[in-house]
């Protein structure tokens, strides 16, 4: 991991800026505050990412926002070595992973800019980090847990 790679992720061009909706503003603003916000279902007890009207596990409309611990496990990953969209074309190679959050039922895809391609493993423990996108919003990345 080099500082140069991390630096290249701090610049967020306008075409990558989140466009919050009525449904998911809480997620993007939470990430801006340094919190990973997900939904928890009061009926089945499971969690979900991304925000929806209904629980994707049980179908009920009994969801509340909670702040996830930020801990998770890599279900799978890849090393992106070709992406023609700027600024990703300047960031390659980088790791993108599918991560099972510690909160049951919630899974998401995230970049792991601080994890070197050779260090990524399925099953590795990871934790959320937050990267500003403008003044109020943010992205959730993951890095190796301590």
């Amino acid at each position: 991991m080099t500082e140069a790679i991390a630096a290249s992720w701090s610049d967020v061009p306008k075409w990558l800026m989140p466009r919050p909706t009525k449904e998911d503003r809480e997620y993007w603003e939470g990430a801006g505050r340094g919190e990973l916000r997900i939904q928890h279902c009061l009926t089945c007890g499971r969690h979900q990412h991304y925000a929806r009207m209904l629980c994707s596990h049980c179908g009920r409309q009994t969801l509340e926002w909670v702040t996830a611990s930020g801990g998770g496990t890599v279900y799978s990953f890849t090393v992106i070595r070709q992406n023609g969209v700027p600024p990703f074309n300047e960031r390659i190679p980088f790791v993108v992973a599918t991560i099972d959050l510690d909160e049951d039922g919630a899974r998401l895809i995230a970049a792991m800019p601080e994890v070197a391609p050779d260090d990524a493993r399925i099953g590795m423990r990871v934790r959320a980090t937050f990267r500003p996108a403008g003044d109020e919003l943010g992205f959730v990345d993951f890095t190796a847990a301590e």
């Binding site: 466009r19 992106i80 895809i109």
Partner: peptide, 23 residues
């Protein structure tokens, strides 16, 4: 809207699935 800012590509999505099968 969540995936695009991570830099994941279409090829990358298949690649993650292949990686899991290998694992």
């Amino acid at each position: 809207s969540y995936e695009f800012p991570t830099g994941l590509t279409l090829v990358g999505a298949y690649a993650m699935a292949a990686q899991r099968h290998m694992h």
